[in-house]
Design a protein around this nucleic acid. Structure first.
Length: 478
RNA sequence: CGGGGUAUAGCGCAGCUGGUAGCGCACGUGGUUUGGGACCAUGGGGCCGGAGGUUCGAGUCCUCUUACCCCGACCA
């Protein structure tokens, strides 16, 4: 952004204290509030509206790719959860348990779902019999609970909202296709709808989901140079199917195990929107998911004709745009700041001077650019600007991401980058977990992913010097 | 789960070596204002996070507890 002086003092500057800046935005933009339960949050109407727009967009993409929504119980009997060994070990430390119903102790504890693989598997075992029953392409929107030790609004809370897709396929090839298809759906959603550029790739064995054969991820980079895992897609192979006995008879009348996938994104993406697009004046929302895309600020609204004009403008615009008039009796300057803090993409000022000239003033949230526009061309200009903002946010985020993406050819270089200019580090890796562990130990960085777009920076591992197998994106992560 | 910090009005804070709580913003009302967080007047609001203890007396001292924030280990 420009070096214009900061107009609002209510938000801590992100250069001074990024964590505080993040919290300030959440509070000042009315996205969420703390609750009386540790580690949980109240998603307020404005924050929830953003989630609803995200849901709507994603859900349409899921339907387009043939998926159906279902709803599973929020409780899992302990015995069911424990069927898959790797899976239960992965989640055991963060599971919440229900031990009583009323005053009576339960014969079997119930786990509050941290994820629903076992429920879907149990169900699939019951309803899949023939190859004609496949594929099963299910998704559910729900909340899950993970008893985390440290929490932050949107990024990590004990309970969070998400969707989890769970599919069952006849062949390994189909399952792999589905895994990648949904990863691409997420990547496209992040870039086209949220204007957040992502790196697509595969997780290392150390970082992959408990019980999965392979985990794929989209990784994004926040303003402070930390990485955020923004969505994952897993190929389960037939591992769960073997444990849960999900079998079908193929066309040759032979019993086969299904091949499964699962994939999810969460309200954490709201945290990504904040940390990718936000600035020192507050939230900046991509138009596609902004609950209010344009706010009309009447100036000298007590003067005759101003409010009716504002209403007329709203009526004209609301056919295509989510528009709101702020006719509260605040000062105009106060309203400017308020709606900037809330990230409203466009502001339209209308006052006596404008009415006289048959014009209005349009101001972009992202660049603060000001346009004096004839009322005759208003609709077209508004639509154009919203599209420009959506596009420019992605470009700007991509430019920043690229700027903060470094390459390291030696361990020293790697450490120095992490210390001095945090971001993504591209470096070669031998494929051994020992090196992954060593890098984390020495620098705090983890393997974010093995990107699909591989490059050969060197022939040797950045850590041990033995022959390199992959290019890896490394970074400190949320 | 370790290390550090905070908790007093809706928010941000002040309150000294103990004596019964104050400021700014916000909020209500009346008026003047209105193109980058207006001004005057007036009004309401807090048993000081919770529980114990010391004391004639605790926001202040002691113990315990809870929540939040920051930094590390674990995770979407």
């Amino acid at each position: 952004m420009s070096n214009e002086k900061k107009l609002v003092e209510a938000i801590t500057s992100m250069d001074v204290d990024f964590a505080q800046w993040y919290t300030d935005i959440i509070k000042k933009a009315d996205l969420a509030d703390y609750s009386s339960v540790r580690g949980c949050m109240i998603i307020r109407p404005y924050g929830y509206a953003i989630w609803e727009f995200m849901q709507k967009d994603l859900d349409a993409r899921f339907k387009e790719t043939g998926h159906e929504n279902v709803y599973m119980p929020m409780f899992i009997p302990e015995s069911l959860l424990q069927k898959e060994k790797d899976h239960v070990e992965g989640f055991a430390p963060e599971v919440a348990w229900v031990t009583h119903g009323g005053k009576e102790e339960l014969a079997e504890r119930l786990c509050v779902r941290p994820t629903s693989e076992t429920l879907f598997c149990d169900h699939y075992a019951n309803i899949i019999h023939s190859y004609r029953d496949l594929p099963k392409l299910y998704n559910q929107w729900c909340s899950v609970v993970r008893w985390e030790k440290t929490t932050r609004p949107f990024l990590r809370t004990l309970e969070f909202l998400w969707q989890e897709g769970h599919t069952a396929h006849a062949t390994a090839e189909e399952a792999q296709e589905e895994t990648i298809r949904m990863l691409n759906v997420y990547a496209d959603f992040c870039e086209q709808t949220l204007a957040i550029p992502v790196v697509k790739g595969k997780k290392t064995d150390k970082e992959k989901f408990a019980g999965a054969k392979a985990t794929y991820t989209i990784e994004s980079l926040m303003h402070d140079g930390k990485a955020l895992q923004s969505g994952t897609s897993h190929n389960f192979g037939d591992g769960f199917a073997r444990t849960f006995g999900i079998q079908y008879t193929d066309s040759a009348n032979k019993l086969q195990y299904v091949h499964q996938t699962s994939w999810g994104v969460t309200t954490r993406l709201i945290g990504a929107i904040i940390m990718v697009h936000g600035d020192d004046n507050g939230l900046v929302l991509p138009p596609k998911i902004a609950p209010v895309q344009l706010v009309v600020i009447p100036v000298q609204q007590h003067k005759e004709g101003v409010l009716p004009k504002a209403e007329e403008i709203k009526a004209r615009l609301q056919k295509n745009v989510r528009v709101k008039i702020d006719d509260s009796d605040r000062m105009p300057g106060w309203k400017f700041s308020e709606h900037e803090m809330r990230g409203v993409p466009l502001r339209l000022e209308i006052g006596p001077k404008d009415i006289e000239k048959n014009q209005c003033v349009l101001v972009r949230r992202d660049t603060r650019e000001k346009f004096f526009v004839s009322l005759d061309e208003m609709e077209a200009k508004v639509e154009q600007l919203l599209m420009d903002i959506q596009r420019d946010l992605l470009e700007k985020a991509r430019a920043l991401r690229d700027k903060k993406t470094y390459t390291a050819l030696s361990l020293d270089e790697f450490s120095r980058i992490i210390e001095e200019t945090p971001g993504f580090i591209k470096a070669m890796w031998c494929g051994e977990q020992a090196c992954e562990d060593a890098l984390k130990e020495k620098t705090g960085a983890t393997a974010r992913c093995i990107p699909f777009e591989q490059e050969n920076l060197a022939d040797t591992c950045v850590c041990c010097g033995r022959p390199a197998k992959h290019l890896v994106y490394w970074g400190k992560a949320y």
